[in-house]
Design a binder for these strands. Structure first.
Lengths: 157, 157
DNA sequence: TCTTGACCTGAAGTTTACTTGAGGTCTTAG
DNA sequence: CTAAGACCTCAAGTAAACTTCAGGTCAAGA
């Protein structure tokens, strides 16, 4: 166990193992994230990692963003706007948040469309061959160019 | 170009190239999806693929689902409930749709949480080290066990 | 007929996101 | 002080989702 403690008696920094256990990700994954610049740490005299408490929130953020389909590269780009050891400025936050909001809103819109499409399809069978000629006879959308247009809200950035 | 036409003068079936162009995915990807059982085709006398029109909707569905972080395996499992050449029964649809709705709703909830967290963070800097001690002093959540709890709505199924 | 572009298969290569393994060091409870 | 368990690095392995390549076939216009 880590000996240094903060004002409330909790450790001021966390070892990899502690971060792994509390964040639910493997130690190897934390190493990996560090090589990718997603998180960072200080080292003890014996070369062991010590993480600031804030790393837990960063890891949460990473995992949730990944789960909704955002790549580590994109996540890294976003997090790079936030210095890991210094409080970010208000402008940093605003910029990051605005960019992500757009991205997240778009993904939510896509999800909603996917879900609603599915709802529409109950009792219609429109992913199958036969039924949907009634609904979308002979592919009117074909003239509008390439790419899925019904479901896809916006194509890859 | 494909010669057979349907009632409205549009081709009754599509070649890989046509599907690729209209769906916006590469020919090699369509081949790949076919090996994975995500889509299927008939063959001409000369061994070329001919797709039913419905494949476009299937491909759209696949891409959108992927974009929001769902694996091809999961997508395949969902689509396998829908016969590619036969209209699915109403029960098939209800079952599929119910299962997906839950999944999609969960992902939307996660996205929303991620977005709202980001909103909260403007002017706080809670992914950084210093500021958020004000908001979450010394990690009260630590006692509740492992795993990100603030952002993660539900862990991997 | 010929030739050019679309298509075929199977194998190998690529990227992303990790995990596993080998060989060695640190730390801490007893 | 010492042994077990946590940690270290670097290299190699793995799985998913494709793409690229090689070597050949098919189809449609001039």
């Amino acid at each position: 166990m880590n000996k240094l403690t903060g004002p409330a008696g909790l450790p001021a920094t966390l070892s990899v193992g502690e971060v792994a256990q509390r964040s639910g990700v493997a130690v190897s994954t934390l190493h990996f994230y560090e090589t990718k610049g997603l998180i960072s740490s200080e080292r003890t005299a014996g070369n062991q990692r010590r993480y600031a408490r804030a790393v837990l929130r960063r890891v949460s953020f990473i995992r949730v963003a990944q789960r909704v389909g955002i790549s580590l590269a994109d996540i890294a780009a976003a997090l790079s706007a936030l210095p890991a050891t210094v409080a970010p400025s208000r402008e940093d936050w605003s910029r990051l948040s605005a960019a992500w909001r757009a991205e997240l809103d778009e993904r939510m819109a896509q999800l909603k469309k996917l879900r609603d499409t599915l709802d529409d399809c109950i009792g219609c069978g429109c992913l199958s061959i036969d039924r949907c000629r009634l609904r979308n006879p002979y592919d009117k959308l074909a003239r509008e160019g390439a790419g899925p247009r019904r479901l896809l809200v916006k194509t890859e950035a």
